[in-house]
Amino acid sequence: MTKSKAYIGFITPGFILYSLFMIVPLGFAIYYSFFNWSGLGSMECIGLENFKRIFFDPRMSRIFNNALGNNFRYMAIAVFVFIPLQILMAYLIHIKIHGHNLFRLMIFLPYVISPSIIGFFALLVFDPNIGILNNVLLGIGLNQLVSSWFGNPSIAFYLLVVVIGWNGIGVGMVIILANMKNIPQDVVEASIIDGASVWQRFWLVELPFLEPSIINVVVLSSIFALTQFDIPFIVGGLNGGVNGKLDFLNLMFFRYTFGDAYFGETALGFGAAISVVVFTIILCIAILQKLVFSRLFKR
């Protein structure tokens, strides 16, 4: 790294744009969280009441904890299941197994489909009456496997995780894949000459080079896990699905801030408080991860 004042010139344009359009509005949102305000009309400053309501109102805290739990459960799956899968997929494509060009496209492709269309696919596949899945199961005589899918409290959450994963797994994969292209090839060649197996070569030689992109993907996946909104909203509905199994923090935020589609009662102040809480949680996790990683890799 260099010591020079030149960084000011590089950072300033981005800093101004970002601060003006992202951080200033965020500042206002934090300010709203101390008010009882529908979004229209007068604002009444109520101090920390909104936050007290989230944590101590028996009903609200139950909803909040349930949503938070779902977010964390999803984050765990994203980090411990999806990321190893992403590394594996990227590696298989990197070492050019048969069909790697097609796989690269097809694994990423679902990400391209907008979430509203994904919701539409979910209807066509999982609807208990008209969906293809139940009809195929009935057709091949597996009647006992027929299910109400997203209406079944014991599997709805995992089903949603699969849909979200199917949709987004390609992103982490291309990030890791791009990193694999930076692995110095002479090092890899040397290990091949030394007679390392594919397995050894991957673990001992190549994986260490992937550290930066894996850290990226861990940080980004965690943030995305805690800000999940689109697909749960479109697939599970605004109220958090069967028995609240598909409820997430941002869904709760949206539901209370803007109300329901038909008869919305807006509560911008309370909604802002929810998003401030979510924001704080994510910030803590991001900082924690940063500390852990910099300690771990001594940077």
Partner: peptide, 16 residues
């Protein structure tokens, strides 16, 4: 309402 109506959404209700 059908055996698995808990998994049906608005569109599914009208379509069936």
């Amino acid at each position: 309402y059908g055996e698995h109506f808990l998994g049906v959404d608005e569109a599914g209700q009208y379509l069936s």
